[in-house]
């Protein structure tokens, strides 16, 4: 039987919930039935991409408005891990960000999307009914 996991969660647009969402990602990595790679590494990576995507949604898309919310879905089916993070904002141009940060000039910001792009196979950012959605996909081994 194929392993199918679907998690659908909404939290207020506040950074205090980053740890909760990250923890769910970690627990999924540790629970997967057939994963053959380093589980603790996958756990950290899921925690990280969820934290980065959600922090972007909270700060940049939803502009820190605590009345808004962030909607996250995590789906695993046939070794494909899919994560969607929905915001309620005007969006930002994800393609305008450099593919790699400026490693020479030591900047404080600009590593979040680079980290997501490095750890996931496919990353898109598109409009949806009430805002934008950052979608990330990875084929698990």
């Amino acid at each position: 039987m194929n392993e199918k996991i679907e998690v659908d969660i909404k939290v207020p647009n506040q950074t205090r919930y980053l740890g909760l969402i990250g923890k769910i990602g970690e627990d999924i990595a540790r629970t997967l039935k057939k994963y053959k790679g380093d589980r603790e590494e996958l756990a950290y990576h899921l925690n990280l991409v969820l934290t980065e995507a959600m922090a972007n949604a909270i700060r940049h898309a939803n502009e820190g408005n605590p009345e808004k919310e962030v909607h996250i879905t995590i789906t695993i089916l046939d070794r494909i891990l899919n994560i969607k993070v929905y915001d309620q904002g005007q969006g930002f141009d994800v393609n305008a960000l450099p593919a790699t940060p400026d490693f020479k000039n030591l900047e404080e910001h600009g590593r979040g999307i680079y980290i997501i792009r490095t750890l996931m196979d496919r990353v898109t950012y598109q409009k949806h009914a009430h805002g934008h959605v950052l979608e990330m996909e990875k084929t698990l081994i």
Partner: peptide, 14 residues
């Protein structure tokens, strides 16, 4: 666990 904001704070201090 450290994310890009955590790294950013350390870069700021550095």
């Amino acid at each position: 666990f450290v994310d890009s904001s955590g790294l950013g704070a350390l870069v700021s201090g550095f």
